[in-house]
Write a protein that binds this DNA or RNA. Structure first.
Lengths: 137, 137
DNA sequence: CCTGTAATTCGTAATCATTACGATTACTTA
DNA sequence: TAAGTAATCGTAATGATTACGAATTACAGG
């Protein structure tokens, strides 16, 4: 997702255009991998020294709720990254060392043969974990 | 997994047979669904009033590390349940209301077509979330 | 361009789950 | 049953996240 798309979503929901949100979005636009809240904080400190925890966590939650950020969890750590372009549903390989990802175009839901007709499906998660070529060296 | 199998694993790794571990294992043997640490604590309090946080969390970690318990995360909550019998690899539908599960026998790793030969795969996760028939009513 | 107002942010404190610690107790083996 | 080690207890410390009142900022309307 581009920053423009993110801002369009935010403004549509009556969130205001602020410097901090811009710094946060620009950061996620550039890194394009899963990062921790602490990593966000350290990076953002350079553009706005003294930025508050409140501001970071509150906006991460807003972005995540609006689908601007994608959130997952690995070894008890919360990770965030910019949501992929919404043109096609897919999943990810995630590097446990650096957070970089690789797309997995297929979706396992297509292959599920179990009858879940009595169940109400809210969502699903498919992720492959490991080390990317660069981190193996 | 049965309690006997769990104890066999524990003793093989030189963990001792204690009353608290027995209480914990018996609880997981009976509930057979995903529960939070707090739910464990409340249930176990009845068999051993005043049991320490340390004891619960330490043993949950031991059980999880030895593969006796299966651990996952849902909406920021850590969930534990007795590991399934190890006879066949499979995945789960998980009820977001009560923690009950239903087995999904197929594994998405069989269908992945992306070339990951340069990657070192450490693991994967496939879970379907929703509400089970009983919780829909 | 001003002003009013409501959202946002700041700085810090509070909360919550989890982990750590020193003292005590319990298990195992001989 | 005694020694040696692991496990537990009770509580304190930790670390990530959330909450709060005061100050600041963005934006709409005059």
């Amino acid at each position: 997702m581009t920053m423009d798309e993110a801002w369009k979503i935010l403004l549509k929901h009556d969130y205001k255009r602020t410097k901090n949100r811009d710094i946060l979005l620009r950061f996620f636009d550039q890194v394009d991998r899963y990062v921790t809240a602490m990593e966000v904080r350290n990076a953002v400190e350079q553009d706005n020294p003294g930025i508050s925890f409140d501001t970071i966590y509150r906006n991460l939650a807003v972005f995540s709720r609006l689908g601007i950020l994608d959130e997952t969890e690995l070894n008890g750590e919360r990770l965030f990254r910019m949501q992929c372009a919404s043109d096609s549903h897919h999943h990810h390989f995630i590097c446990t060392t650096c957070g970089n990802t690789k797309s997995i175009p297929s979706c396992p839901m297509d292959q599920v043969t179990v009858n879940l007709s009595d169940y109400e499906i809210e969502g699903h998660k498919f992720e492959i974990y490991g080390r990317c070529p660069r981190c193996i060296e």
